[in-house]
Design a protein around this nucleic acid. Structure first.
Lengths: 346, 346
DNA sequence: GAACTTCGTCGAAGCGTTTCGACGAAGCGG
DNA sequence: CCGCTTCGTCGAAACGCTTCGACGAAGTTC
């Protein structure tokens, strides 16, 4: 391993000159710069990340903290990651993913206080998220993907759930549906303060009420069985339902299975819209799902850009931004069969 | 941020003594140790990772290199990751995931030569994988999850595809199936030298031939549409098929949809077995899929253990190990309907 | 052309650890 | 009780880089 010393000797300049060539913090004449670059190439020199980090007190490493639960990363989360990695690379940072789950807060504290991360992007943020506190105490700059309850002081990027739900409901209502059931995440998830579940619940209520319709929400476990149970519950609460809006990407497969099992056809008997879903998953189902497509890679990119701007720039500005999901119509929605659009009060 | 200096001063010992307390490389009396620990607690001291890395020439960071393509991480890959992270934590290492895709080999080279990673676990290894060369040139110890073509010199953990396919085929043959079609990954994937696809192909041929049956393999694109096309191709090549064995986790949903679309019931008309699948995904389908469950977290754990043993231990031993997937019978397999088990030649 | 800047380079002082050699104090066999 | 190890501690030298102050040389300003 060649060091800066070796490069300096070969190029017949001082060590500091080599450093300035590398970092560009002071002007260097073209002639010397070339000499140095040639020496670096000849020695196949690579700066030592540790030494650089120690001396400059910045690691040029950004962390993406993603709790990994059993059910894996959806294509949505993957898109976050790839978007973020690309943006980090552009800004001259490395991005590392840390699978620190909810449990090991100590692990996170250690990571944060060891000054190994210049900044952090938090995924899957809870309304009351202890990780935020830990990182703030450790003085690590952070950007959220998602939002805590109190959004006033932090930088975040999040999905505009309000707008997304409104668009989804509007699509169904526009087709003539009146009895629409919303299948959310589980009651436990709601109780734990999971933002997306809460926000979509409220948005759904508001949106349906705005159309003069009655909002019916079912909480479903994140599993196919949970989806089946949810559909049964839905029919119990709203026997005449003609459309299902589902936030729960896992349960939706159970919903589809149960619908088929009951001899009901999608979309002719019941329309189905999947929320915050990637095209890949939407295409898995038969028929392919009409879905609200999440702006995955854009979220990741914007989060990293906000973070690097904060780190490199002088200003310590907050960045807060919401992005809606885009409606992509596939085969799972249509006008309700029996009842034609009964142009009620619009 | 408190430094070792501060701790040393407060505890009234020398800096080196504090270091020895921390690293345990030299004996320290209980009395001094306690003084030092008290001082560290009082100052909320955390060692600086960069300084430590520079001085000791080891970062205590392990990399898990996972190419992230669009379709996301399955539960299987996620299990790798969680298993690996847990094992790393036990061994006193941090695990970071690096989403270095196939394209950015330079990125990998930089990461490797910057001495930021003590060792690396490679996921999704190709038969001829350039990343291996890059890392070996950079002198970074590595362990593969998967195998390259020439397995003689490297450490690896992999699924025992041979055994797994044999078990899956045996299950179907035991139920009375004779016409079994194997749905593999795409032709392009096969051509690119993706080990699992190639190995299962060969194992399937061997296994079927061993039972005196004719092996029929179809290559399917990784999508629901690919699965549908594959099923059509399968019926064209083997009209009397009664069972499908599928390696392609994505295509299998298309296969199921197409089967239902043709008015065929699973498992009564056609049995379906999914290879290298997590329970979570198997349960998504209706009916739930009989599947070969991958030993995900064990693979991750074993890989990290092999790596840390190599790093910490003196011996530089190779670790090579194969783990089979376990057959989990769910609702998608049964004896073939029309043809009763025709006890041919066994 | 004297008094200032700006440019390009150098030497040296850190950054916060680990680790090596040294050394007094015990413990021990003969 | 004399040399020997072993134990517990210290001081100082790395580790490979960044960054600060300094300083000639050259360019500007009046």
């Amino acid at each position: 391993m060649a060091t800066m010393h070796d490069v300096a000797r070969l190029a017949q300049v001082s060590v500091s000159t080599v450093s300035y060539v590398l970092t560009g913090t002071r002007p260097i004449s073209q002639a010397t710069r070339n000499k140095v670059l040639a020496a670096m190439a000849q020695l196949d020199y690579q700066p030592n990340a540790m030494a650089r980090g120690l001396a400059s007190r910045r690691s040029r490493i950004l962390g993406l903290l993603m709790p990994m639960d059993e059910r894996g990363l959806g294509a949505t989360e993957t898109a976050f990651v790839t978007g973020a990695a690309a943006a980090a690379s552009v800004a001259g940072y490395h991005l590392v993913l840390s699978p620190v789950g909810g449990g090991n807060l100590d692990d996170l504290r250690r990571l944060a206080s060891q000054r190994m991360l210049d900044g952090v992007v938090l995924m899957e943020v809870q309304l009351a998220d202890e990780r935020v506190t830990v990182l703030q105490e450790a003085g690590v700059p952070l950007v959220l993907i998602g939002r805590t309850g109190d959004t006033s002081t932090l930088s975040y990027v999040d999905i505009d759930f309000d707008q997304t739900v409104r668009d989804a409901v509007a699509h169904l209502v526009g087709l003539g549906h009146r009895r629409i059931v919303y299948v959310n995440h589980s009651a436990a998830t709601l109780a734990s303060g999971y933002g997306p579940a809460l926000r979509t619940r409220d948005a759904f209520t508001a949106s349906m009420t705005g159309h003069g319709l009655e909002p019916v929400m079912i909480a479903a476990e994140d599993s196919a069985a949970g989806g089946r149970a949810a559909l049964a519950a839905a029919f119990a609460q709203a026997p005449e339902l003609t459309a299902v809006l589902a936030m729960n990407e896992t349960a939706i497969f159970g919903i589809l299975g149960e619908l088929t099992g009951r001899g009901l056809s999608v979309p002719d008997d019941v329309s189905v819209v999947s929320m915050v879903t990637s095209p890949q998953v939407a295409e898995l189902a038969t028929p392919a799902l009409t879905a609200m497509t999440s702006p995955g890679s854009a979220l990741g990119r914007i989060a990293i850009e906000a973070l690097t701007r904060h780190l490199d720039g002088p200003a310590d500005l907050r960045h807060q931004q919401l992005l809606p999901c885009a409606l992509e119509i596939r085969g799972s929605t249509a006008a309700p069969r029996s009842r034609q659009p009964m142009g009620a009060d619009q």
